[in-house]
Write a protein that binds this DNA or RNA. Sequence first.
DNA 1: AGGATAGCCTGCGGGC
DNA 2: TGCCCGCAGGCTATCC
Length: 290
Amino acid sequence: MPELPEVENVRRSLIPHLVGHTIRSASLLRPDICTTDSGHPPSPASLLCDATIDRIERKGKQLAVIATDGRVLSIHLGMTGQVLARATPPDPSEKHVHALWTTSTNPSNPSFILFKDPRRFGGLWTFPSIASLHALRWSLLGPDALDAPPDAWSAALRRGHRPIKAALLDQTSVAGVGNIYADEALFRTGIRPTTSTHRLTIAAATALAANVQALLAQAVEAGGSTLRDYRNADGVAGTQQLERHVYGRSSRTCLRCGSPLQTAQVGQRTTVWCPKCQPARTIRSDSVKH
DNA sequence: AGGATAGCCTGCGGGC
DNA sequence: TGCCCGCAGGCTATCC
């Protein structure tokens, strides 16, 4: 399941396959996965046909492939989305290939880019301009959890009246935090996920934001953490699985103190925490690591 | 208006 | 072995 570090690795691995290249053809095998700014069905041009790619940007978990003429194709991987570069076209029997591009500066040696997504929680969004991307989508997101200084969004984590876990997952607070890193960052900071945002001290929010960013940066450098079907554009899985202290360790014991981990739904998400390392009242804002 | 909830989807693993 | 069910969750629409 791609989170921000996986999306960032997809971005980086796509650069050599796309930037500086011209899209020769674009086809949408599942039109319903694509949303256009106009509401009209996507044209080949809106899918970047005949465009030369200038750069690939990321905000939170969303990618934007930007052409030299300003056209934008935004890609969301959702739960199970993959963008894969291939030297040969996909076999017609290959399941869940929803979009296909050929891209090459040399027509006799085409390469293929596939968008694959079994669960179809991901999708494509087309925009005529970068301004349109920002106006319709990216302005709705908070600062990027990896690139923006934690000081720029730690205050947003204290907004509203809800569990801190819900604030972390709210993409308008900070963009890019998913369930795995939310739970892991809360563990590392010693904050119980159910803690109300209005009870979170400024120091605790600051420490939490710093830990979120440190964990994300660590995972990016590890090539993304491989959970289930994550692959970068070259089909390569994350190199090393970062140690997870709580996420996915339901009904096991804490790696730090040995206490049985606790599991509950918080912010409509399965949440795991250590009742001892993440106490209900005391907020250990001094537990920043690394 | 902010926060809670439902729904979208398929693959997989556990239980029987 | 094979079937059924629960679960995984990012994001949007809708409700309260």
